[in-house]
Amino acid sequence: MTPSPPPGRYGRWRDQAIALGWLIAVWNLLWGEVTWGNLVGGTLVGAAVLLFFPLPPVSFGGRLRPTALLVLAGTFVVELVSASVHVAAIAVRPGFRPRGAIIGVRLRVRSDLNLALTAELLSLVPGTLIVQVDRDAGVLYVHVLDVRVPQDLTGSRDRVLAVEERIVRAIGSDAELRLLSTDPADRRSET
């Protein structure tokens, strides 16, 4: 994986502050109202959570692009609906046993954040489900539902990379964006 530059003291504090802000927001939403008591309580609980359950740092090095974020969200909703219809149709078709496959797809941007987000979204778009993540190699192993012809596998591979591309376009840094146009030579098994 590409080693990201070690986050400085400022970056680490910024990540923690964002996490704390999110936890305070969740706490207030759970109580259903924003009061001074809830803000203080949320700060205490959030600080305790961050202190006692530390997570490996996932730093956000990119920048948000509103248009690309809208594209990402819009496409996601459309794909979630079509994925649901697809699975639902298979589920109720009598006497149909779907064939499956597991394929490995090498992502172009190997940051932890990108791997995690792509893996999450993949399970909610048509035909794909994440089975295994090879973090060091940046490879996602994906189960494909309803394979009929070998071309379906190529289609799924392209769909995985399309999801990755939309994510990077929405939140990636400029350097990561440039990586998208370079097609890795060692892309696994062109079926």
């Binding site: 064939r99 394929i103 295994q132 192993y141 394979v147 596998l153 696994r188």
Partner: peptide, 13 residues
């Protein structure tokens, strides 16, 4: 038997 391809078991493909 339900898998056409399994690149996780057989990464060398």
């Amino acid at each position: 038997d339900l898998l056409d391809v399994d690149e996780l078991a057989d990464p060398g493909r």
